[in-house]
Each structure stands twice: as structure tokens, then as C-alpha cells.
């Protein structure tokens, strides 16, 4: 997995490429936490180029969402493929996150 971070209209946008799994989840978590500690509050993580997120990856997203909310911010997710959406629905995490089809939709109103 690799990821890139850009600031767009005051929102921190993280593009994830590759799988978010138990072996690499901490890299993404630390990067977002660094941005949060640096004062950023609004986040979008885009998974358009991600084929698979395992339960550990889902757990990291839950943990990040909690920490961002505690700081008065918001984390949105975008670009989930059909399989990933199914995993979010099965685990009911689709009720926890605002999930949009595209990054642009996620940025609207954030």
C-alpha cells in the first residue's frame, strides 16, 4: 500500500493505493494522526485504487474516526468498490461513516 496526502480547500485528502491490511495499517493511521496533531480537522480518505480492506484496516478507520470526532472534526470515505461497500454494510460501519462514490462528493459541504 502507498498513499498520498494533499490539502484541498482546507480538507486533508488521503488517496490510498493498494490494500489496507493488518501488515500496513499503522502507516496510514500514523499519517492521519500526524495531520490531526498538526491542527487538521477535516479528512477524506479515498479508496478508489484500493481492492481490499481487512478487519484490521476497518478497525484503524474506526479508531481514526473516533479520534477526529473527539477533536471536533470529521472523516469521510470515498471511492469504495462493490466488495468494500459490502464489507462496510456487513459490519454496519456504513452507519458510522459518511461514504460517497467520489472524492468530489465527499468534499462537498465538509
Amino acid at each position: 500500500m502507498s498513499f498520498s496526502v494533499v490539502k484541498q480547500d482546507g480538507v486533508t485528502v488521503v488517496d490510498v493505493e493498494g490494500q489496507l491490511i493488518v501488515g500496513n495499517r499503522q502507516e496510514l493511521k500514523q499519517k492521519v494522526l500526524d495531520e490531526l496533531e498538526g491542527g487538521e480537522r477535516r479528512f477524506v480518505i479515498d479508496f478508489r485504487q484500493t481492492g481490499y480492506i481487512d478487519s484490521s484496516g476497518l478497525g484503524v478507520l474506526v479508531s481514526l474516526s473516533k479520534k477526529i470526532r473527539e477533536q471536533g472534526g470529521e472523516l469521510r470515505l470515498s471511492g469504495l468498490n462493490e466488495d468494500l461497500r459490502t464489507l462496510f454494510e456487513l459490519t454496519k460501519l456504513d452507519t458510522l461513516f459518511r461514504i460517497t462514490h467520489t472524492k468530489e462528493e465527499a468534499l462537498q459541504g465538509l
Binding site: S55, G59, V62, L90, T91, K92, L96
Partner: peptide, 22 residues
């Protein structure tokens, strides 16, 4: 069960659940 309201925000506990669901 990781999908109950009290467990939904926990970071762990979804692996076995997913196995059983899938």
C-alpha cells in the same frame, strides 16, 4: 458481536464476525 451499538466504535473484533458472515 461487533455490530451492536456499544461495540461499533471498537477498533477490533471484526475478523471472526466477517468469517461467519461470509
Amino acid at each position: 458481536d461487533p455490530t451492536t451499538p456499544e461495540n461499533l466504535m471498537r477498533p477490533g473484533g471484526r475478523g471472526l464476525f466477517l468469517m461467519r458472515q461470509l
